[in-house]
């Protein structure tokens, strides 16, 4: 990997980096970014979801609420963290703490690293779809600044469920997609051998998303990636988060919400019957 220039990387190479076993997890970033972090637990309805970590602390003296999906470092921890796939409780905990942040005028930072929301029996019984839908709805009206960074895998609705933000960034080796390339190849082509094609076709790298105007910026990881230089990656992430928050904290809530609405309102590419691209 080392000799490869970033421009030579295939989409599948990026996917592998985004899922790299030594890639820093959400908790690693929180520990590097946040002073006096206190983790807060539970959705007050059913359970605490270890696949979603959330809490409060200081980012360079600014009180913040920070949260994200948490993967494990080894098999044992991954089982406890459910490989970073949250249940409805995870999304409801996230929402509870976002509303708490709003109440006390604290900005919200979310870090995205999940293969997706968990597809299981309990998750469906307790309303996985409803939990995500309500988060999208509530985040679009949350009256404090929200900044998101996709640090690893941005897996579909499970990622978006905490990613309706004023500014969305991606680390340079992160991915963000509507479906995994494996899922895409299997559903669309019934061919699990075509995952590399699917990874290209989905346009899931940071550069693709910037081109499609879905994200605001790319935070470059030192070569060959965050797994080799976690501290430097965290330093760059912190710099971007701080600069962005300082800018957003100056905006009135009504203007902030209007801008957030328009940001997502303008996403999508289509035409009218005259062929004009809108």
């Amino acid at each position: 990997m080392k000799e490869l220039d970033t421009t030579m990387k295939t989409a599948l190479d990026t996917v592998r980096l985004a899922r790299h076993g030594k890639r820093p997890t959400t908790r690693d970033y929180i520990d590097a970014l946040i002073d006096d972090f206190i983790e807060l637990h539970g959705d007050r309805r059913f359970a605490d979801d270890p696949a979603m970590v959330a809490g409060i602390g200081f980012l360079e003296g600014i009180p913040v609420t920070i949260m994200g999906q948490q993967k494990g470092r080894n098999v044992k921890e991954n089982i406890r963290r459910n490989f970073g796939m949250a249940h409805p409780e995870g999304y409801r905990k996230a929402l509870r703490l976002m509303l708490q942040a709003e109440r006390f005028g604290r900005p919200v930072i979310t870090l995205i690293d999940t293969p997706g929301a968990y597809p299981g029996i309990g998750a469906e019984e307790r309303g996985q779809a409803e939990a995500i839908a309500v988060n999208l709805y509530e985040m679009s009206g949350l009256r404090v600044p929200i900044v998101t960074c996709v640090t690893g895998e941005g897996g579909s609705g499970g990622a978006l469920g905490i990613a309706v933000a004023d500014r969305v960034f991606m680390l340079s080796n992160a991915i963000y997609s509507v479906i995994s390339h494996e899922g895409c190849a299997s559903i669309l082509w019934k061919d699990t051998g075509r995952t590399a094609d699917a990874a290209e076709a989905l346009r899931l790298t940071a550069r693709d998303l910037k081109e499609l105007k879905v994200i605001d910026g790319i935070i470059p990881e030192p070569d060959p990636g965050a797994h080799e230089f976690p501290a430097e990656t965290a330093r760059r992430l912190k710099k971007t988060l701080l600069q962005t928050l300082r800018e957003l904290l100056e905006i009135d809530p009504d203007a902030l919400l209007q801008q957030r609405y328009m940001k997502f309102r303008n996403m999508g590419i289509f035409a009218n019957s005259a062929g004009t691209i809108l």
């Binding site: 709805y137 009206g141 509507v178 989905l202 899931l204 879905v214 996403m267």
Partner: peptide, 23 residues
């Protein structure tokens, strides 16, 4: 569900429609 062939743009329609319900 979301239309795979439009990738991430399809995913963003979820946020867009949910926000419009707020309106």
């Amino acid at each position: 569900g979301a239309r795979m062939q439009e990738g991430i743009l399809s995913l963003m329609q979820m946020a867009k429609t949910a926000a419009a319900i707020r309106r």
